[in-house]
């Protein structure tokens, strides 16, 4: 049984202009100790999905169906107080987007870590202080700096502190939402390395949300590519990167320049991601897809298995995609 199982999750936002289906029947699994990368462009629903799992959706967002099982226990039907006490941070914690601003500027960083521990666990203050210092040391920050305020740290160090906070209650799963977006390349490399090392040391499961396919390639075991609120391709990173089956994944992979390989042209897909207030009928990708045909305009494709290794794709044209054919060659 998977550690975290998400089944047919639907998250809709009510807005003045109508209902936005931000997450539309998404299913995924994370096993103990594995890392799943969620890839997609802005507005594809990846953050909404994470927020729904942790019940941190804004007031106009609501879960309209589906299941979220943690170790076989349905955590969606729990009442809020129980969820706060026994799941959030203790079992599933989060490294949020723009974590550089996630720290409270008027408290010392040590105090903020201790607060998280004391809120969730029944320990003495001195025990919490000791654990806070251990956590800082683990992410590579001298414990002596726990009495410093956030502005006294650089961006990369603040990010490390936020990671320490996410680990403060020994969670099973960490959801990292664009953990390195605001950081410089060199710091990004340091932080991702730190996350990887911690994951190995603590046998953590990770859900890493990013628009950057190279981060997922370097840190995750599996990948789910999202487009317009749906997962359109799902499988192990080796399968999906080596043999992508959905035209969108193929295009996305070709939009990334690879500095260590021979120079290849960067492609761009025509059009832009769909407006989820009035998404196109049928396959949501059809207006941008070079393979779109009659059925794509009418029927939404199912996420179907294309490879025994549980590589799944939602596309009507998977048969047409023989390995090597260049569908994006304009």
């Amino acid at each position: 049984m998977a550690l975290l199982e998400v089944k047919d999750l639907k998250v809709y936002y009510k807005t003045l202009r109508g209902c936005v289906k931000a997450v539309d029947s998404v299913s995924l699994n994370i096993e103990k100790g594995r890392a799943l990368g969620i890839a997609g462009e802005s507005g594809c629903g990846k953050t909404s999905m994470a927020m729904a799992i942790l019940r941190l959706l804004p007031v106009n967002g609501k879960v309209y169906g589906g299941l979220v099982m943690l170790d076989g226990v349905d955590i969606l039907s729990m009442d809020d107080e129980e969820f706060r006490e026994s799941v959030r941070w203790k079992r599933i914690s989060m490294i949020s987007q723009g974590a550089m601003n996630a720290l409270n500027p008027v408290h010392t960083v040590g105090e903020q870590i201790i607060e998280a521990i004391l809120t969730h666990e029944d320990v003495t203050r001195s025990e919490a202080v000791r654990r806070g210092n251990d956590l800082l040391e683990m992410v590579g920050i001298h414990p002596g700096r726990s009495k410093d305020y956030p502005h006294e740290f650089s961006g990369g160090m603040k990010q490390r502190i936020v990671i320490a906070m996410a680990l403060s209650c020994n969670p099973d799963i960490v959801i990292a939402d664009e953990p390195t977006t605001a950081l410089d390349v060199m710091v990004q490399s340091q932080i991702l390395k730190a996350i990887g090392d911690l994951r190995n040391a603590l046998d953590l499961s990770l859900m890493l949300i990013t628009h950057d396919l190279s981060i997922i390639a370097q840190t995750c075991d599996d990948i789910a590519v999202m487009y317009g609120g749906k997962i359109i391709e799902y499988g192990s990173v080796v399968n999906v990167y080596g043999n992508p089956k959905h035209p969108y994944s193929i295009g996305l992979l070709k939009s990334f320049p690879n500095i260590k390989a021979e120079k290849a042209p960067i492609i761009s897909m025509p059009g832009s991601p769909p407006d989820l207030l009035s998404p196109p009928a049928g396959c949501k990708f059809h207006p941008r897809c070079p393979l779109a045909k009659g059925i794509c305009l009418e029927k939404e494709p199912e996420l179907a298995k294309v490879h025994p290794d549980n590589h799944r794709v939602a596309c009507h044209n998977t048969d047409m995609l023989k390995k090597g054919t260049d569908i994006w060659n304009q």
């Binding site: 410089d184 060199m186 490399s189 340091q190 190279s214 370097q218 990167y241 690879n258």
Partner: peptide
Amino acid sequence: KALIEAVLVPDPKKRGFGEVLKGEI
């Protein structure tokens, strides 16, 4: 050299974070 090493490669078969400089600017 460090700047080039720090660029991540979108290829799961070529893994590894290169040697980057310690600290920040």
